[in-house]
């Protein structure tokens, strides 16, 4: 049995040994020539290649596309038009009235996304924090509840959208319950307010487990002694939360805020499946606008979609830098 295990082990490692033997001499020469810095470059190279092919080149291409016109997909079918696409997106007669903008759908999507982000991030952070605080307590079945709250994170966004559409549609589960309770059925997803609330609620439900986990890790890193010292000092629970828990949770909080903000701006899949941007354009968010302009509409305009995505990227970069600045300042203040 031991002999068989040894043979199996050799069979598995044999190809690796061959590769190792083949790359060893040139790597030794390379290390002698460039030192350990050069070796680091060798090990980073595969990752950099993947990053280059799948992130950097598309990013540059996207920027190039944003300065081209026409409906063709291939670059040689498109004409260079400079910053015209950006001008088209940003041109308005009166910035307080969307209808006067040349690309009013873009502004609708921007307004919808901003509203969505404000509500969704606030709700997400609040609910995640409350859930983390509850799960951090010594409650019965804590492990089970942690798994339950994290479970939606494992679902594909399309599945999330389908589940909730099945619940919220005209003949869905929710209406079945309301009818059984003797109430009038509601057309949830055809109502502007309910549809918006559904997108906020569903995306919060789908992602809160992840943020709860980050906050829970932060809560568990706060030494128990600090709470016991506060208990000896007769500190009321709200003051403990405000003066001890929240400040010490700061770095985790900043991470959660940045990630929730970025994902909020990028929201697409579950909302597209759930409401399709409707009713009308009431849940049309920026990523869906980009997708529809670039690929789905009859008069597709990849250049305009690329310009919109560049603008969205710029906003995300600014938001991220702002958040990082805030969190570093907070950490610096704590260290002083």
């Amino acid at each position: 049995m031991a002999g068989f295990g040894k043979t199996l082990g050799r069979a598995v490692t044999w190809p690796l040994t061959l590769v190792a033997r083949a790359v060893d001499p040139p790597l030794r020469v390379w290390q002698r020539w460039t030192g350990t810095g050069g070796m680091a470059a060798v090990f980073l190279a595969p990752n950099l290649a993947i990053f280059g092919v799948f992130v950097l080149i598309p990013l540059v291409l996207n920027f190039v596309y944003s300065m081209t016109g026409g409906t063709g997909i291939l670059l040689d079918q498109r004409s260079f038009i400079g910053m015209e696409q950006y001008g088209r997106l940003l041109e308005c007669e009166d910035y307080t009235r969307r209808i006067t903008c040349r690309e009013d759908q873009f502004w609708t999507a921007v307004t919808n996304t901003a509203t969505f982000v404000i509500f969704q991030v606030t709700l997400m952070v609040t609910v995640s924090l409350i859930t983390a605080l509850i799960l951090n307590r010594n409650i019965r079945g804590r492990g089970f509840f942690r798994a339950v709250f994290f479970f939606p994170v494992l679902l594909s966004p399309v599945v999330v959208g389908l589940i909730w559409r099945w619940i919220l549609q005209r003949q869905g589960l929710l209406n079945l319950i309301t009818v059984n309770l003797g109430l009038e059925p509601e057309v949830w997803l055809n109502d502007r307010f309910y549809a918006f609330a559904a997108t906020v609620g569903v995306s919060t439900w789908a992602h809160m487990g992840f943020y709860t986990l980050i906050l829970l890790a932060g809560l568990q890193a706060i030494p128990r002694d600090l709470y016991e010292a506060a208990e000896m000092d007769a500190t009321p629970p709200m003051r403990v939360f405000r003066r001890i828990t929240l400040p010490l949770l700061g770095p985790n909080f900043a991470v959660v805020l940045v990630l929730a903000l970025i994902r909020g701006v990028q929201i697409f899949d579950e909302v597209y499946v759930l409401t399709g941007g409707g009713p009308g354009t009431s849940t049309l968010y920026l990523t869906q606008y980009i997708y529809e302009v670039g690929f789905a509409s009859i008069l597709r305009n990849p250049g305009l979609a690329a310009a919109a995505s560049i603008l969205m990227g710029a906003v995300l970069v600014v938001l991220t830098l702002l958040q990082l600045w805030f969190s570093r300042r907070a950490e610096g203040r704590r260290a002083r």
Partner: peptide, 8 residues
């Protein structure tokens, strides 16, 4: 406390 438990 052994760890001092000072609020950092």
């Amino acid at each position: 406390f052994q760890s001092y438990a000072l609020y950092p």
